[in-house]
Design a binder for these strands. Structure first.
Length: 646
RNA sequence: GCUGGCGUAGCUCAGUCGGCAGAGCAGGUGAUUUGUAAUCACCAGGUCGUGGGUUCAAGUCCCACCGCCAGCUCCA
């Protein structure tokens, strides 16, 4: 018998090996209503209607509304894809590899004998898949004895499935196959009750993949698909992809001349062009100002340091594969820094510290270099040289809680000022292997928890997901098209204070080990600007816009007045350009629009005679005539408040 | 790093079966003097990613390398 604690229905006992489907029948027999279930969650594991339940636990029915149910849908879509291929190219010609789910869909690795699939083949496969869905094949699960399974797949010439059975499924473990119409596949599940319940999908791409991902093994073809319950959700996702393409920061960076990454300099190394540098400068200035206000002390540290320093910190032993290789000067080894922490520790240790001067908060926009494998580099998002908005807080035990709260408040205030107001917070706790004693971990983890609760945010706990040297909070932000980006991190470090023997002299005239907190708000300035560009689709808030206003003379004769206007605005601290080209006004407006310049100030005879400007904004079009001072006041006010309005 | 796709003018891209390297935009010059998203004409711009090979002939076919893009993997 298995004991189940069923959500909404209470405690039940069933025969060993009962399936979800039978449970539903039983419950409905008692007059209970279970609407729209497509699967279940047994102790957080997704199960389908077919799988025998052999151990008790907490059971919850999954409907299409539960995100976990997509797993079932997508798994079945992968099977439908496999079935379609078999029906098109012949049962014995198609050799199936594996067909798992992905974040938004699924894929199946296959080999079609005597045929190399191309993108052009995909529509026909999709068509066949739709037909199979329409056929509404009942999906059934069966468990086979090992020998029988081997014979079955031998007969079907499923060489890869045989490989899985022989090498991946231990003797004695049940071997399950799923059947739908004439199609039968080795699979662990979970699956839908029938193919007719499969939702909306699209095959999106084709790539090669070695069997088991190992070079030297035969190469299969991997067909990727995306899948959702409804046509609407699928469309939404595809639209999001379209939209994301349009706002791709790499494209915007090129079009707006913000930054460039060239082969000559090297992959993952960013050159900031003048306009991009303006954005970065504004962000850095605001950052410095805010940190100074909140009691941080700004420091600068070098880009390289001696080998011994990185040995003491542990980087040479634990982080070396991410570091640029060592270099030698006068027979002494040096490393380019992958992190700023050891330098900040040295700054702390510059002299003996008293308990009276804690907390010490050291902040730096420190550029670090890390070796990232070439395949992972991606515009500004993943680079080899980037600037951390780094700070280390060194404090006493009795200050920990207050400090963490302050950090989190600063994180939220800052992110909100850039227009982000939806967050996901993760608290990662102690992993198996770790340093530091229980008391420290408990105090640190609790203060992180309390801080999140004090700012009123929801959070998820990643049990055991902390670094070996301390627990942490990660904050992700949601952008305008719903994507989440990891930015901020607040991390305890019980390791470095020990390794560097950091201490302060307490009231008792004894040495004490301080707590050290490592934190960043943006994480990486480069990446954050990438996120900003995609969030705003290139139309940045006024205070960050490289060119805030373009003065557009209607004809050449108005150029002197346009220059005069520009000078007045420059004197007021605005970033202005005059379009002096001998082009038609319409062309100048178009170009300013394409450059995503927030304000276009059209000046002709009327404006010249009255000392005004005709204001056109990127968002709202022509908003009327302003005197120069009126315009300056408006712009300055919006800049001051970091407004996203124009 | 792995797999697939792609590298042609500053940018976006065309280039058929192997047969004289093209267009639009950007740039330069000149004309035009314009009222809220593209005025016209002319000019210049190329080691077709790099290196080999096949061929009478290679942007095109083959091999190797480099780079970019997508996915995977990785991300104490």
């Amino acid at each position: 018998m298995v004991k189940l604690d069923i959500e909404r229905f209470g405690q039940y006992e069933f025969e060993d090996g009962i399936t979800l489907k039978e449970i539903i029948t039983a419950l409905e027999g008692e007059g209970k209503k279970i609407k729209g279930a497509v699967g279940g969650l047994l102790d957080n594991q997704i199960i389908d209607f077919h799988t025998p339940i052999r151990k008790g636990g907490k059971l919850k029915f999954l409907t299409r509304k539960d995100p976990e149910s997509l797993e079932i849908l997508r798994h079945s879509l992968a099977h439908i894809l496999a079935q379609a291929l078999k029906e098109i190219y012949g049962d014995e010609k198609v050799h199936l590899g594996i067909g798992p789910t992905t974040e938004h869909g699924f894929y199946y690795d296959v080999e079609v004998e005597g045929k190399r699939l191309t993108e052009e083949d995909l529509p026909a496969v999709e068509e066949k898949m739709r037909e199979i869905i329409k056929r509404d094949c009942r999906i059934e699960r069966e468990e086979l004895p090992r020998q029988e399974a081997l014979e079955l797949f031998e007969k079907k010439k499923e060489i890869y499935k045989l490989d899985i059975i022989k090498h991946q499924i231990p003797e004695g473990e049940p071997i399950s196959v799923y059947k739908q119409c004439d199609f039968i596949d080795l699979c662990r599940g979970p699956h839908l009750p029938s193919t007719g319940e499969a939702g909306a999908f699209k095959l999106v791409s084709l790539a090669g993949a070695y069997w088991r991902g190992k070079e030297g093994n035969p190469m299969l073809q991997r067909i990727y698909g995306v899948g959702f319950w409804t046509e609407k959700e699928l469309k939404k996702y595809l639209n999001m992809l379209e939209e994301a393409k349009k706002r791709d920061h790499r494209k915007l960076g090129k079009e707006l001349e913000l930054f460039t990454i060239t082969e000559d300099v090297g992959g993952g190394l960013v050159l900031w062009l003048p306009k991009g540098a303006v954005i970065r400068n504004e962000i850095e200035n605001a950052w410095k100002e805010e940190h100074t206000k909140r009691g941080y002390q700004l420091v600068y540290t070098p880009h390289v340091g001696k080998e011994q320093l990185w040995k003491t910190s542990g980087h040479v032993d634990f982080y070396r594969e991410n570091m640029f290789p060592e270099m030698y000067i006068e027979e002494e080894g040096y490393f380019v820094k992958p992190m700023n922490c050891p330098f900040h520790v040295e700054i702390y240790k510059n002299r003996q510290r008293s308990y009276k001067e804690l907390p010490i908060r050291l902040a730096e926009l420190g550029t670090v270099y890390r070796y990232e494998r070439s395949g992972v580099l991606h515009g500004l998002m993943r680079v080899r040289g980037f600037t951390q908005d780094d700070a280390h807080i060194i404090c006493r035990e009795d200050q920990v809680e207050e400090e963490i709260k302050k950090v989190l408040q600063l994180v939220l205030d800052t992110l909100k000022s850039y227009g982000f107001d939806q967050f996901q917070v993760f608290l990662s706790t102690r992993p198996e292997k770790s340093v530091g004693d229980d008391k420290m971990w408990e105090l640190a983890t609790n203060s992180l928890k309390k801080a999140i609760e004090s700012v009123g945010l929801d959070y998820e706990i990643d049990e055991g997901g902390g670094a070996f040297y301390g627990p942490k909070i990660d904050v992700k932000i949601k952008d305008a098209i719903g994507r989440m980006w990891q930015c901020s991190t607040v991390q305890f470090d019980f390791n470095l204070p020990e390794r560097f023997d950091m201490y302060y002299i307490g009231e008792d005239n004894q040495r004490h080990r301080p707590y050290m907190i490592h934190r960043a708000i943006f994480g990486s300035i480069e990446r954050f600007i990438g996120v900003l560009l995609e969030h705003y689709a290139g139309l940045l808030p006024l205070w960050l816009s490289p060119v805030q206003a373009k003065v557009i003379p209607v004809a050449d004769t108005h150029t002197p007045y346009a220059r005069e206007v520009a000078q007045r605005l420059k004197d007021a601290g605005l970033r202005v350009e005059v379009d002096e080209r001998s082009e038609r006004m319409n062309k100048k407006i178009r170009d300013a629009e394409l450059q995503k310049i927030p304000y276009m100030l059209v000046v002709g005879d009327r404006e010249k005679d009255t000392g005004t400007v005709s204001v056109r904004t990127k968002k709202k079009g022509n908003i009327g005539v302003f005197t120069i001072d009126e315009f300056i006041d408006r712009a300055k006010q919006l800049i001051e408040t970091k407004s996203t309005e124009l």
